[in-house]
Amino acid sequence: MKYAIEVEDLTVAYKEKPVLWDVDLNVPEGVLMSIVGPNGAGKTTLIKAMLGLVNTAAGRVSIYGKPYSKQRSLVGYVPQRGSVDWDFPTSVGDVVMMGRYGALGWLKRPGKREVELSLRALEKVGMAKYADRQISQLSGGQQQRVFLARALVQDAKIYLMDEPFQGVDATTERAIVTLLQELRAAGKTVVVVHHDLQTVPEYFDWTALLNVRLIASGPVDTVFTEENLRLTYGGRVSFIKHNGHNTDSDQEKRAEAGGI
């Protein structure tokens, strides 16, 4: 099997506390993968480590066999929506255009082509008519779509997304899921940090369970088991049945709360 991302012996620590411990993870090309785990499990850190955004204490990450610094153009990144100031004086189209800055290099300025590409990306997320809107006027779901469009405009082979479903309305959630599935159908590899266990079997075909250590990774059918979930969330999800979507949502919430 060809791997899009290979993580070997990855360890990350903030001060003395390990956030990720000896993680080995292979992501095959063309999968739509979720990373799940309780709060503080290191999901965001794992994604940031793949992108070279955090200092690693040990280990290696390769993208199609080479270090990330050589493969930047192959990777698109969707950070958490809350990581930026949405009152920044800029427009929706301008934010999306930032996705082209890497391809433009140090000195070239965005031109007609970039405007065109940004508009097309905004169309894909259903936001074309918002191109000139000031970003502070967007709802949470719209902000998320703008970030997705910014990643789409990077025209990458691998997409790393940090909690794209966090705090979005049902319509946006549907739209994002459709988009993710389109990306997979186009042969892209998509890795999503996800917090809603209930939707994992429905949305994803591949998953990784993480709690500082990697508990398991593989196809959802074989890996997303009661046993593995108990190992990940510390024994408090024993009532989660296999075949996820039959799960009682109330119990699910308790499981989430227990993990926190």
Binding site: K48, L51, G52, L53, S69, R72, V75, Y77, P79, S83, V84, D85, F88, T90, V95, M98, Y101, G102, R150
Partner: peptide, 13 residues
């Protein structure tokens, strides 16, 4: 980039 989203800027190289 530095003022709006430095992490994203870093991933662009």
């Amino acid at each position: 980039l530095l003022s709006f989203d430095p992490d994203f800027g870093a991933t662009l190289g």
